[in-house]
């Protein structure tokens, strides 16, 4: 049974696309068939981050409008044959996504994949609401700073009201992915601490990804963080997060701090 995951945040620039690619690749590395869908029509970036920008022929808007069949638009990753990308259109805008069209595409994808990762655009408008609409699970990407936290809180409210699951009266599973975390700056008080963010958002923690040059490096070479260098700190964080998403119990570690102690403190909060 396919699981639909929306990667969302409200605020832009917090790492939704990076996280979508990294989690998608990490799940695919487990041998599960995964597709990452770019919902950011007009500002597509996922193809770049996944190194597939020169292979895009058809996109999700073509599929919705009937100009192309779904298999024609899907791009198989060159490094991992279980990883696929459904790109967004760069020349259209978000109004070209229709509710019926998106539903049709999602239903088709569910028949062929284990995981469908929906990379949401920033904001709370059409693109974002359509991306979350059919999700079973939400990964809320948040940076440890107040505006990102407030926007995430807003998105959590929408996940509980504007999604198919919410309308059926079911509970949407939500996980917090804290990105760009810097333990030293959090200790100095320049950044919110993990505890502060968890207290405000009160959803379970999926992982903490450290602020790292490796993330930028990976996107510049067009590889998901987990594929570029699977030993780097952010890659390890994403690999652990993907295991937790798949239902495994993995002790939580805060990058830049000592492992044993934090396992004790945050283990109980692990998703």
């Amino acid at each position: 049974m396919a699981k639909v995951v929306v990667v969302t945040s409200g605020k832009g620039g917090v790492g939704k696309t990076t996280s979508s690619a990294a989690l998608g690749a990490a799940l695919a590395q487990r041998g599960e068939k995964t597709v990452v869908v770019d919902f950011d029509v007009g500002l597509r970036n996922l193809d770049l981050v996944m190194g597939a920008e020169r292979r895009v022929v058809y996109d999700i808007v073509n599929v919705i409008q009937g100009d192309a069949k779904l298999p024609q638009a899907l791009i198989r990753d060159k490094r991992l044959d279980t990883l696929f990308l459904l790109p967004a259109s760069q020349t259209r805008d978000k109004d070209s996504l229709t509710a019926e069209g998106v539903e049709q595409v999602m239903n088709d994808l569910k028949r062929h994949f284990d995981w469908i990762i929906c990379d949401s655009p920033a904001g709370i408008e059409r693109g974002a609401t359509l991306a979350m609409r059919h999700a079973d699970v939400a990964v809320v990407v948040t940076n440890p700073e107040v505006s990102s936290v407030r926007d995430s809180d807003r998105i959590i409210g929408l996940l509980d009201s504007k999604t198919e699951k919410a309308e059926l009266g079911e509970r949407m599973e939500k996980h917090l992915l804290l990105t760009r975390y810097d333990a030293v700056r959090a200790e100095r008080g320049d950044m919110l601490k993990v505890d502060d963010v968890l207290e405000i958002l009160s959803i379970p923690l999926l992982g903490i990804v450290p602020e790292s040059m490796d993330v930028l490096k990976a996107s510049n070479i067009g590889a998901p963080v987990t594929l570029a260098d699977s030993r780097s700190a952010p890659a390890l964080a994403y690999l652990d997060a993907a295991r937790r998403l798949a239902g495994e119990t993995v002790p939580m570690t805060i990058p830049g701090e000592k492992r044993g102690l934090l396992g004790k403190i945050f283990g109980r909060r692990a998703a």
């Binding site: 407030r150 809180d153 929408l158 509980d160 405000i200």
Partner: peptide
């Protein structure tokens, strides 16, 4: 449940009790 940013609970008929936090906004 926690009341999230952007949500508005309006109950002119009486008391409102929230078991959880009320977010900024």
């Amino acid at each position: 449940e926690p009341v999230r940013s952007g949500q508005s609970i309006i109950f002119p008929e009486g008391d409102v009790t929230v078991i959880g936090s009320v977010a900024s906004g």
